[in-house]
Write a protein that binds this DNA or RNA. Structure first.
Lengths: 261, 261
DNA sequence: GGAGGATTACCATTGAGCGGGAATCGAAGG
DNA sequence: CCTTCGATTCCCGCTCAATGGTAATCCTCC
């Protein structure tokens, strides 16, 4: 749908370009950018110049390109993500203060967990979650909580796909997962020992919005060898309810159970 | 530089559209978006549909449009803003815990202060700073600190412009401001009583990068009637040095003084 | 000084973007 | 039920901005 031979719009190419940057590749030359995106050389240079003009990209002294401050600003200003984050942050700080390990807030986006916020730069424990990072739903405690409280139709479509097995403990069988999700709804939290990284476990609880639909998952990552991980649950639950209430939630837990498939 | 009658590229129009959203107008109908941006009706609809396809915008049940999660993700992933924020957050939490009023981190961007992070949802005090929000350099303590440690050439060009007077205490005279900036460099902090909002004062200190250039301003907003605002300075300074060190700064204060005009 | 890469300059081709206009949908009100 | 009035979608011919090859230029680094 564009003048391009490959048939993609400028917006599509724009997304391709910006997507080429992540925390492992936060800046690169225009030529490399062209290679990573697969766009024709000349086109890449032209497009990058347009983006530099609007400050969506920025050029650093060396000549390399990185995501511009403007891009961050536009993505944050008036975004729902930011307001959710702001409602949650004070509660997350409390959790962080008590649990002493990294605390994260994740939402369901495009069949993955997207981490909105993360507190605790504690390096002593393996934690691969990053702000604006993504992880698969079925292999994280946050993801399982989000999935467990999603509409049944969505769960069905998700479970119908082939699921990657990351470690020995990753559940991939649909019916087994369904049972597990039911348990998560009943207990009110998900605890996953080493689903992606064997050394650490995640514990997650749901955050609800005014419509009683799940909005996010609050979780902590603790060392796997910890004596009693479930002891973390009450703190998490209390904080999650606080966040929910800050979002306008007035419902009760039974309201959430109604949503089980 | 596009097929458009007005001569703007798609990227330019994209920015126009996204800029139409802010915290006061976080969602609107496509028609209203067209009005706000001044774009032709048909064009707005076509462009919005492209953006919806890429999930840079999202449509809510009512039909209104808002900034998409994808946009936030792309703006955050691999952005310098995010890494600065992450380095600063733990220190900001400490400040917040001690000072008990809102703590902000701002950078210099396009001749304004752009607030990167803000802690403390304390409603008892008037504070107009918002995350991803902007305020003029000469009317905020953060802005004055950023300006004071900027290259002399930049200060000159900035002070050459006409400056808006927000309250009685806002400095707008160039030579007066220059004197004030020198004082800020000497004392190491800026204290501004009610420069934009009369009821509150801001206190800000500089954060430096490895090259000894200023990178950000750390500040707190306190009630104006507070007995001794300067008492807040030591905490701020210590934290700012902590952030600077986390960014790779190894320099000494004299290094910063050398930069005075 | 020259090999290899990154970047810029040039330019003929063409279809994606453009935007006016009309039709359709939908809610509010009489 | 009918009528506004606004939002949204459909239609369609025009045209120039975007495209992407090739070639020249600018860098480093060895």
């Amino acid at each position: 749908m564009a003048n391009s031979a490959s048939g993609e719009s400028i917006i599509g190419r724009f997304v391709k370009i910006v997507s080429a940057f992540d925390d492992r590749h936060s800046s690169m030359s225009v030529a490399e950018l062209g290679r990573r995106t697969g766009l024709p050389v000349t086109t890449t240079y032209r497009l990058v110049n347009d983006l530099l003009q609007e400050r969506l990209l920025e050029r650093e002294p060396g000549g390399d390109i990185h995501i511009g401050t403007r891009m961050w600003e536009l993505g944050s200003r008036g975004s729902k993500t930011l307001s959710l984050r702001e409602a949650a942050l004070p509660f997350m700080e409390d959790v962080q203060a008590v649990v002493q390990h990294s605390t994260t807030l994740g939402i369901l986006d495009s069949d993955e967990v997207l981490y909105i916020e993360r507190l605790g730069s504690d390096k002593t424990i393996v934690d691969i979650t990053k702000v604006a990072g993504r992880l698969p739903l079925h292999a994280t405690s946050s993801g399982l909580v989000l999935l467990a409280h999603s509409p049944a139709a969505y769960q069905d479509s998700f479970l119908a796909r082939p699921l990657t097995k990351f470690t020995e403990t990753t559940l991939t069988d649909p019916s087994e997962l369904r049972r597990h999700l039911a348990g998560i709804r009943q207990r009110g939290f998900a605890a996953m020992p080493g689903v992606i990284v064997p050394e650490s476990s995640g514990i997650a609880v749901p955050v609800f919005g005014p419509d009683n639909a799940i909005r996010a998952a609050l979780s902590v990552v603790v060392p796997r060898n910890e004596e009693n991980p479930a002891a973390r649950v009450p703190v998490l639950m209390a904080s999650a309810r606080g966040i929910s209430r800050a979002l306008g939630w007035r419902g009760e837990l039974k309201g959430t159970l109604r949503q089980s498939h």
